[in-house]
């Protein structure tokens, strides 16, 4: 199977039923997407597929490769994306993390949201974050970082 990850076309020799997360982490060495539950509940594995935030732990490889010219962005690739880089910068500025394990998935979802809606409502922000869990209680900082990213995007 072949598709684009972080701007580079990759060839993958894996079981079509394999969840994308393991392929990204172990076959392609993009470790920034993380295993949390394997059931799509926590969002630590979230990546962008054609601009949509998707939980890679429940996304089988066949569903990725069946799309025409799929493009995947992980946190590693988002750094080269203007909006992704800006969102990540806002998270660092606000020190919006404790352990940081959940944050990359959250940055990915927030980037997808701001690419779609540059000035989202509070309800739209909460909807985008509804598939993410954080255990350290960094939520208030994460929300501050999202606000800060929005301010940077809409001067």
């Amino acid at each position: 199977m072949s598709f684009k990850v972080n701007g580079r076309t990759v060839e993958v020799d894996a079981d079509p039923d394999a969840p994308l997360l393991y392929v990204l982490r172990n076959d392609l060495d993009f470790k920034g997407s993380r295993f949390g539950c394997g059931t799509g509940h926590c969002g630590a594995c979230t990546v962008l597929i054609d601009g949509h935030a998707v939980q890679s732990c429940t996304t089988p490889l066949w569903s990725v490769s069946s799309a025409p010219n799929p493009e995947i962005l992980t946190i590693e690739g988002l750094i080269a994306d203007p909006i992704g880089a800006l969102v990540r910068e806002a998270f660092l500025d606000e020190q919006a993390a404790q352990c940081g394990y959940c944050i990359n998935g959250i940055i990915v979802s927030v980037t997808a949201l701001l690419k779609r809606i540059p000035n989202p409502s509070q309800a739209e922000i909460l909807e985008a974050l509804s598939r993410h869990l954080c255990r350290c209680g960094s939520h208030v900082r994460i929300l501050r970082a999202v606000d800060s990213a929005i301010r940077m995007l809409t001067p």
Binding site: R25, F30, K31, G32, R34, F35, I75, E76, I79, R88, F91, L92, Q95, A97, G100, Y101, I103, N104, I107
Partner: peptide, 20 residues
């Protein structure tokens, strides 16, 4: 001072945890 955490940039980039 509120020195920024030195560990965060790596954690918000890619491999940083024992898991990785």
């Amino acid at each position: 001072l509120s020195l920024a955490r030195p560990d965060l940039p790596a954690k918000l980039s890619g491999a940083a945890f024992v898991h990785d």
